[in-house]
Nucleic acid binder design. Structure first.
Length: 788
DNA sequence: CGGATCGAC
DNA sequence: CTATGTCGATCCG
């Protein structure tokens, strides 16, 4: 630690010297030159072609999003604004500024360690890594555009004098460990993020420190010059702090709400941890670049993005983050992968696969882990990545067990491109689906041992054995998926028809066409367990069929049967196909309790909406005519999948359902399709001489177009909704100028008289009025002002 | 559950 | 010549 500190003390001085010293030949390059050189080295390569392809995919995502955006109606936006702002209030109330979190980031860590060990390097531009990939670079090199995640051969073009030092993880780990020992002093529970980063919660330390005698107090990290510090009330802010003022910076956000908002105001979203290249681009397409813009567009975002995403956006724009450092939980997966120059023969691919399995098995056993899912990862020479996974009944951990699964996956992929060779540049194997502690217990006294002990499987009824076709149907019902798994099953079927032959081994490698038949000395028992064909077991205790595909669950069932505790439960399990079917039919229906639950959720989320929803025509007799309104929502094509989606739907239903007419009312409308050169569009028009009457204002409408009519209903609805809302005193007062323009533009005869309308306000400033000033009526930026 | 993607280090 | 390795999370089907 101290050594790192010393070497890095000079770093700043050297850097400053370098800036003025052209003798060293390190004047660097300007951005334009850098980009030009990178482009020349890049374009035309397979890598670049794939980058372009990925870019196109992102563009398509953006296009889809923009189409959704077009379809959003004003009242949907308004509605969303209400719900989101309700949430904003809750979030504000839960804001916690009482912790002090520090983020430590050791700058160019690997490079700093290498320079410490070889002082000659200090004055040179260096990078750590290889010709194919760099992990980091020092500041001399960065002036030439040499950066982490850049291949070394391109870096060399940018900076011909660049010294590339190979990675030496053991060394970095050792230094990292030394640093961590010091961090422990300040927070014994600090959270390391990789070798060169950590979060510390120094709240308690600061309290203790107050009582320390003067001579015991030291400054934090006062010898550490390459370390970035971020000090803030939560992890997200601390991390963004440490990014500021690089290199050698320190930054602090005071534990005050306003300080947090000021910090975020003009901060580009890309600086936020969790917002990467793609998200940045998507948001940019919506005109969002800074955190305050993120806040301003919160309603729109809630309609265009998933719940998890927009809630995260909201947290970000409010400057909320975790205030305590959670220990990272149990590991969820373990993997190993390798990049190599093209491998295209099945033989090499299988032996490589086995090698990876061997390495992985070794690591798994170090941690005593067993997993049920094996995933094979392949990257072809065009840089296209594929993953193929298979979940088996009994968890695996040994080389043989993992390979038994992985080789099937690989075989399927080889076959899928046959007769062409599979040309790959990377292969990886991952094991996941680890047993929980509880499951481990059941795994020990398992069926496995019973099976392994002999060939007696009388209690394990192999349904597939009775009638293979039937079994296949059953499986494809359970997983109505495409060709891949059908092929896989077919391959397995073939395998089981050609019993494992210990002598096959290598000869088969040469027979590319039959690589699916590739079978090594795989244990029969494992195959039996892993086979998807035997999904239905008969419990040896209660003789009930068990359809779980999880060995541990089965064992648990048997245990419980043995102890007699399951008697009651089994009575409730449907016993024949008929009753099972009726259960399935029943499942998708929403129970009345669920609706109540949803309503509660809606009340929570949208409190003020309630009165708007229940007050008028929700009881309209025409309700049943308009059941399709939910599918009218442009931003959710899928069925409600979680509570808040359902809640949202219930809310939409109550407020809007009786009032609009959908395209499904075929008795009222007929569809006309207009075809043009590039596209065709369809319109819905009222049949014959029917006159459309607005269900809100009761007036006859001149139009016979569904679109125009619904537009009118929207406008009417907005009027009613807003009246309801403005009667509510605790309505969130967060409408900014932009919103008011939009809403005001839609509602005729309602003009904004607020003098402050023209002045642009940041969303964050208005959010300030949400929390504390909302109660006092001195906030001018209220919806009341706009609509009274 | 499986597959693709994103994001971080 | 030559564009990483590992992990968790999330979304969608």
């Amino acid at each position: 630690m101290k050594k790192v500190g010393n070497s890095s003390c000079n770093d700043g001085a050297l850097l400053r010297m370098g800036l003025n010293d052209n003798k060293a030949g390190m004047q660097g390059l300007d951005k334009e030159k850098i980009n030009k050189i990178i482009m020349e080295a890049t374009k035309g390569s397979r890598f670049y072609e794939n980058e372009l392809k990925k870019d196109q995919q992102v563009n398509q995502r953006i296009e889809k999003m923009m189409q959704l955006k077009e379809k959003i109606t004003t009242q949907q936006l308004l509605k969303a604004q209400l719900q989101v702002d309700k949430l904003v209030i809750e979030l504000e109330q839960s804001r916690n500024l009482s912790s002090t979190i520090v983020h430590i980031d050791m700058d160019a860590f690997y490079a700093a360690v290498e320079m410490r060990d070889n002082p000659e390097l200090k004055e040179k531009p260096i990078a750590v890594g290889s010709m194919s990939m760099l992990s980091t670079s020092n500041y001399h090199a960065r002036r030439f555009g040499v950066r982490a995640a850049m291949p070394g051969f391109i870096a060399k073009k940018l900076c011909p004098h660049l010294t590339i030092v190979p990675l030496n993880f053991e060394k970095y780990s050792k230094v990292s460990k030394e640093v961590r020992e010091i961090l422990t002093e300040y927070d014994p529970n600090f959270m390391p993020m990789g070798l060169d980063e950590a979060y510390l919660n120094i709240t308690e330390h600061l309290e203790k420190r107050l009582n320390w005698p003067e001579d015991k107090r030291r400054f934090f990290f006062n010898t550490e010059r390459t370390t970035e510090k971020g000090i803030a009330p939560n992890t997200m802010l601390a991390k963004m702090c440490s990014d500021r003022n690089k290199p050698n910076g320190q930054c602090r956000v005071a534990p005050e709400r306003q300080a947090v908002l000021d910090f975020l105001k003009d901060l580009p979203i890309r600086k936020v941890p969790g917002i990467g290249k793609v998200t940045e681009k998507m948001l940019k397409a919506l005109g969002i670049v800074t955190c305050s813009e993120l806040y301003q567009q919160r309603a729109l975002l809630s309609l265009l993005f998933s719940e998890a995403s927009w809630r995260n956006f909201l947290d970000i724009s409010l400057g909320l983050g975790s205030t305590h450092l959670e220990k990272d939980g149990e590991r969820k997966s373990m993997s190993t992968e390798r990049t190599f120059s093209e491998i295209n023969t099945a033989e090499d691919q299988y032996s490589l696969c086995r090698e990876l399995c061997r390495d992985l098995a070794q690591e798994l056993q170090k941690e005593g882990l067993k997993g049920k899912t094996v995933t094979l990862k392949l990257k072809n020479v065009n840089f296209e990545v594929k993953t193929r996974a298979s979940t088996v009944l009994s968890s695996v951990s040994t080389e043989e067990e993992i390979f038994a699964v992985a080789k099937d996956l690989l075989g399927t992929e080889i076959d899928s491109v046959a007769p062409h060779p599979l040309r790959i540049r990377l292969m990886g194997v991952r094991v996941s689906g680890f047993l929980s502690e509880e499951e481990k217990k059941y795994q020990q006294k398992s069926i496995t041992s019973f099976l392994k002990s002999g060939k007696e499987i009388s209690f394990l009824r192999l349904h597939a054995g009775k009638s293979n076709p039937e079994c296949f149907t059953k499986n494809s019902e359970a997983s109505p998926r495409g060709s891949f798994f059908d092929k896989k099953r077919a391959a397995r079927q073939l395998n089981s028809e050609n019993p494992p032959n210990e002598t096959v081994g290598k000869q088969l490698f040469h027979d590319k066409k039959s690589s699916a038949h590739f079978v090594e000395e795989t244990k029969k028992v494992t195959d039996l367990q892993n086979s998807n064909m035997c999904k239905i077991f008969t419990c040896p205790v209660c003789f009930e069929e068990q359809s779980s595909n999880n060995l541990e669950e089965l064992n648990r069932h048997i245990d419980e049967c043995l102890s007699g505790s399951l008697v009651k439960d089994t009575m409730e399990i449907p016993k024949n196909d008929n009753s099972r079917e009726s259960t399935l039919n029943f499942l998708p229906q929403i129970k009345s309790e669920n609706v109540d639950e949803c309503q509660n959720k809606v009340d929570q989320l949208a409190g003020t909406d309630q009165s708007a929803c229940t007050s008028d025509s929700c009881t309209s007799s025409s309700t049943e005519k308009f059941t399709q309104i939910i599918s009218d929502k442009p931003h959710r094509e899928r069925q409600p999948s979680n509570l808040s989606d359902i809640a949202r739907n219930v809310c939409m239903k109550q407020c809007l359902l009786p009032k609009r007419i959908s395209e499904d009312n075929e008795d009222l409308f007929e569809k006309t399709v207009h075809t043009e050169e590039t596209s065709s569009s369809c319109f819905f028009e009222a049949k014959g001489d029917s006159v459309l009457v607005c269900p809100v204002c009761n007036s006859e409408q001149k139009t016979n177009s569904l679109v125009s009519f619904n537009k009118h209903v929207d406008v009417c609805l907005n009027k009613g909704l807003i009246q309801e809302l403005t009667e509510k005193k605790d309505f969130p007062k967060t409408y900014n100028t932009e919103n008011s323009n939009r809403v005001g533009g839609l509602i005729r005869g309602q003009q904004c008289t607020n003098p402050s309308q023209g002045t642009k306000r940041s969303g964050l400033t208005t959010s300030q009025s949400v929390s504390k000033k909302a109660k006092s009526s001195n906030s001018k930026n209220t919806i009341d002002m706009f609509f009274k």
